[in-house]
Structure formats: structure tokens, C-alpha cells
């Protein structure tokens, strides 16, 4: 089953098979369906890499919410992607504590070595997207970088090329 939307795209449902089971397992943990929204969005992002219009409508439907409501929530939280991103998503902390330890140089190194060129852009080979993020909560391990779900500490510009080797 697939549903068409105003955007014109055709959406293949996310909540089928094991993902559906994961969703169902969430319901007993909260007294309201609405409360399952954040974890449900995480399930979508884990399955698809980002949250498309179609997926957003699907989430709204399974939780009994309106798409507008869901969109208001999705856009509040910066970790949910509302656009496709590179295969590997790189987030470099550049808030003050890391900033004074050279975080901006680390960002530049990532932009250079990935070929992304600029923040938020995806590299021509589709491999990487690099962004700056606010405090990752690891200031004593400057500069922390989150690559997909891998939290890498103490990154220096010199280490960047080596780190990227692990992400094809």
C-alpha cells in the first residue's frame, strides 16, 4: 500500500514488519498515543535516513495527529532531517568551549576532506553532509564530532582524514 500526497511523491509505508512491531512496543510505555511521537520519528529516521512528507503523514495517521501538528514538532528538534542528507552525517560541535579549543579548524578540515565545500551541503559523491552543531555535551573532550551514531572525541584537524576512512 502506498499513499500519494500534495507533494506528489509516492510514499512506501515505514511502519510495516519489524518497524511496526517496534512502534507497537512503544505504546505501553506511555499513557497517550501522542507521547509516542518522538520515538516514532526516530524509528522513521533510522529506517529511512530522513523524515519525508509522506513519512510525516504516516506518523500523523498512526498516532491520530494532524500532519501540521507533527510538522510543528519535527521542525522543533534539530536532529530530525526533513531533507535527505549524505550517507554519513557529520556534526561538529563549535560552541564556545570547543570553539576556543579549535573546533572551527576541525570543521574546515571536514569540509575539505569530504568535498562538501560548505556547511549543510552534501558531497558530490553523496557520501557526506557536514554541519556545525551547538554543544554536544562533551566539552572536556574537544572537539567532539558525531558521525551518524558514532560519537568521536578529541578530534583534531590532523585526525580528520583518518577518521573519514572508516565511512564509505
Amino acid at each position: 500500500m502506498s499513499t500519494a500526497h500534495a507533494a506528489g511523491e509516492t510514499h512506501q509505508p515505514v511502519f510495516v514488519g519489524p518497524t511496526r512491531a517496534q512502534l507497537e512496543a512503544l505504546f505501553p510505555k506511555y499513557p497517550t498515543k501522542q507521547s509516542v511521537l518522538l520515538p516514532a520519528l526516530w524509528l522513521v529516521q533510522e529506517a529511512r535516513g530522513w523524515i519525508s512528507e509522506g513519512a510525516l503523514h504516516e506518523v500523523a495517521e498512526v498516532l491520530g495527529l494532524t500532519p501540521a501538528y507533527v510538522k510543528g514538532v519535527v521542525t522543533f528538534y534539530t536532529m530530525y532531517h526533513t531533507h535527505p542528507v549524505g550517507r554519513h552525517f557529520i556534526q561538529v560541535c563549535t560552541t564556545s568551549p570547543c570553539n576556543i579549543c579549535g573546533a572551527e579548524e576541525v570543521t574546515k578540515a571536514f569540509l575539505r576532506h569530504t568535498g562538501c565545500g560548505e556547511l549543510g551541503a552534501t558531497s558530490p559523491d553523496g557520501r557526506f553532509t557536514v554541519i556545525e552543531v551547538e554543544c554536544l555535551g562533551a566539552c572536556g573532550f574537544a572537539t567532539p564530532v558525531l558521525i551518524d551514531d558514532d560519537f568521536v572525541e578529541g578530534v583534531t584537524p590532523e585526525r580528520v582524514a583518518g577518521i573519514l576512512q572508516g565511512y564509505k
Binding site: 506511555y30 501522542q34 518522538l38 520515538p39 514538532v73 522543533f76 528538534y77 536532529m79
Partner: peptide, 27 residues
Amino acid sequence: VVVHRGAGAYICGEETAMMNSIEGKRG
């Protein structure tokens, strides 16, 4: 115990924003 994962919002550290976030709302 239920572990609830945030999604990128400093303000959710504020206690009442956190409650909204757990309830599936904007923080």
C-alpha cells in the same frame, strides 16, 4: 524505567519543556 530519547533541543533540559517533549510536543 522508560528511556526517552531527545532529538536536538537544549531547551528540553528545562524541566517543564522536558515534560512537553515526553508528551510528544514541542519542547
